[in-house]
Design a protein around this nucleic acid. Sequence first.
RNA 1: GGAGAGAUGGCCGAGUCGGCUGAAGGCGCUCGCCUGCUAAGCGAGUGUGGGGGGAAACUUCCACCGAGGGUUCGAAUCCCUCUCUCUCCGCCA
Length: 431
Amino acid sequence: MLDLKRLRRDVELVKKELKKRGGDYDHQLEEFANVDAERRSILSSVEALKHERNVVSDAIARMKKAKENAADQIEKMRAVSQKIKEMDGLLSEKEEAIHNILMSLPNVPHSSVPEGNDSADNPVLKTVGSVPDFDFQPLDHWTIGEQLGILDFKRAARMSGARFALYFGQGAQLERALINFMLDIQTGHGYREVLPPFIVNRTAMTATGQLPKFEEDLFKLEGLDYFLIPTAEVPVTNIHQGEILDEEDLPLYYAAHTACFRSEAGSYGKDTRGLIRQHQFNKVEIVKFTTPETSYDELEKLLKDAETVLERLEIPYQVITLCSGDLGFSAAKTYDIEGWMPGQGAYREISSCSNFEDFQARRAGIRFRKKGRKGTRLVHTLNGSGLAVGRTVVALLENYQQADGTVVIPDALRPYMGGAERIVSIDEVLS
RNA sequence: GGAGAGAUGGCCGAGUCGGCUGAAGGCGCUCGCCUGCUAAGCGAGUGUGGGGGGAAACUUCCACCGAGGGUUCGAAUCCCUCUCUCUCCGCCA
């Protein structure tokens, strides 16, 4: 949610900045200005009436105490109260209209965000590691996984449908190993581990910006106002919903492993095979609550924290800055980390690190105060994947595949895999 | 699932028959005083959101005592609905 006062002050500037996103918000912003003016005019008259009511009610109390007759005053106030009730009704209509507009406006891109229309315009910030050179034709991960017997999409489809996977043996172990590996790295960076609920209510989803606009992307529990989380960002950011934090406690760092659930509505035909785009996947998420002054420094650090995982796994990757047209609804600035996936012959998103500034904090009511000082300010919230586990499995299988069909386990991960040096066929393990 | 109790400011906690209670008291915090240091003591201040005024310090008005409705001239106090918390019984990983 954008700052109401800022919209009042510089509607034209906000119009210009939102235009960079590509959508057209002029109409909504103009309607905002109109309704807001109406609201304020109603507000001042209804407040005057309320003031009168307060004063006269007080007088009535004194008259009654003095055993005087207050019938005239009471009669007069009956009419005033009626009027107040009518105007209050009108006022809340205006307020709701303003709220609806505010909730549907995306965040303003940060000044450092490059302008562009879509993902084709995202500049590459840096490239790390060199793409592996195979002396055989590298396979895609679903072929590798199925040949080894560690991934099974057919049976998963039988019980759940498309976009679900079964992991077996060292495949399941690999997923679990990566989760622990990532959590250990991030807690080592100072993040506090947290295991949040995977189901949240509408308020929480609205606070982080998934609602009201993107309900079709979510899995909703039938007949209940509960949703499966699409990312740990939702429950973790909502840890401090409605709280006033002490400035000296900031920044706060959290790391959480959760399953994530996405309906993937509108992505039919995209990445239909393999682990890239699943309805359910694991992710380790890192989340920060900071002061406004430090949030962009913290974003750079958060990005580095996410990168560490790929560095330690020795998987080549690049970092891109999302251009204004490709930015998510709530984000002011986003970096994507893309891991090299030989089976796809492309860099694919494996982490997304964003600064939301006060956009989520305003919706969620997360503020901070300097001890002893009066007044509160909104915190800045940030988060990033550290990393998407399923996609890391993809990168790992495809980058570390061998001519004989086995997959070498990177050194850093071996302690988490019971010391194993490679992933071999399940049949081989059994024989 | 059945029965009962509760939800007040950063925290604890009082609010009688509805009327100077935005809210006693305490803790915490800030500033000042005092004291070799620390601690203790003394004095003052200390909620949030919104509208108006002011360059600002600040000031004025409105709202807020879990959320939403209702009764009333007037509600933290009365009524209804919902949410959450706690206790007991049942069931259960």
